[in-house]
């Protein structure tokens, strides 16, 4: 246990596992993997409580992917209330800087110290409640956001683990390698590596093209002694689903007041449609492997586990 209690450890006390999704490279599908991970963990058990925290401050994509664009965060006496992605069931909640912007096209032009402060606030002021899993989506690179995250969560280090996402081409693998060096330096245990965008199936003739090459992630996992969690081909159905073009109307509503009815309807669709994609089947295997690999945390750290 941490030697002294900080606002962050106090807040994260009721969270069993924290999974950081990272990758040195941008645009390899960290956010889509985080979203799929949260959705799959959510359906892995009927009682699983999952939350997703988006610390990509200058390019938040999670709200869009979960169909929550335009929602706002409510301030309560006990901190910020995260946005619920599954309506009244309230087993999947989400927090992102995207919810705090007045206009969704506003750019967040922040230097390191401001980003650091925002991350501390996300970790210490959000009322997550009891959670089985907190998935953290990170920006590309190995810089301020990553250092801040690990620093603020040092009190709960034993419950942290990471998943590395990469695409198969050499340029991306090089950055993934840097990310791995980073996790080793800061002693962050790796649950495994996911190879994303591995092959594309032509909708016309069914021919598989290796748009961004293939097999590089698996090769890297073998070389570095990491668990290879699986590869995901480009799934246009999923791209379209997460791109969620039809929720424009919600985006126009006021930033602060959320529209629960709309959100529920849209996310029910998301849950159902996601189950129908071919990726969700592949991802189920990945999540099973992830759950297997998550270390069991001692009871003393789970107040509600007794």
């Amino acid at each position: 246990m941490a030697s002294s209690e900080t606002p962050v450890t106090r807040r994260l006390k009721c969270i069993k596992h924290i999974i950081i999704v990272c990758s040195g490279k941008g645009g390899v599908g960290k956010s889509s993997v985080s979203t799929q991970l949260a959705l799959s963990l959510h359906s892995s058990s009927p009682t699983a409580r999952v939350a997703i925290l988006d610390v990509d401050l200058t390019g938040p994509s999670i709200p869009r992917m979960l169909g929550l664009d335009g929602h706002g965060v409510v301030q309560s006496s006990d901190g910020w209330v995260p946005v619920s992605a599954d309506g009244t069931e309230a087993r999947l909640s989400c927090m992102s800087v995207g919810f705090l912007l007045k206009k969704k096209d506003d750019s967040v032009v922040w230097r390191g110290p401001k980003k650091n402060a925002m991350i501390r606030q996300f970790l210490s002021d959000v009322r997550w409640g009891d959670l089985d899993y907190l998935v953290i989506d990170t920006p590309p690179g190995t810089s301020d956001e990553h250092l801040s995250l690990l620093e603020h969560m040092s009190g709960v280090h034993s419950r942290l683990s990471a998943v590395i996402v990469t695409t198969p081409q050499a340029v991306a693998l090089m950055d993934a390698m840097k990310c791995l060096s980073f996790t080793r330096t800061v002693n962050l245990p790796i649950l495994g590596l996911i190879e994303n965008m591995s092959g594309y199936v032509c909708p016309c003739c069914g021919e598989i093209s290796n748009v961004f090459s293939t097999g590089g992630g698996e090769e890297m996992a073998r070389r570095e002694g990491l668990t290879f969690l699986g590869s995901l081909p480009v799934d246009t159905e999923l791209v379209t689903l997460l791109d969620a073009a039809e929720v424009e109307s919600a985006a126009d509503s006021e930033g602060v007041s959320e529209d629960p009815a709309h959100g529920t309807e849209r996310t029910f669709q998301l849950f159902q449609q996601y189950q129908r994609t071919s990726s969700s089947k592949l991802f189920k295997g990945i999540v099973d492997r992830i759950i297997d690999r998550i270390p069991i945390v001692e009871e003393e750290q789970q107040p509600h586990g007794v």
Binding site: G24, P113, S143, D144, M177, K178, C179, S181, F182
Partner: peptide
């Protein structure tokens, strides 16, 4: 090329 540059701003 494996080395990570862990620098703040």
């Amino acid at each position: 090329s494996r080395d990570a540059v862990m620098w703040r701003g």
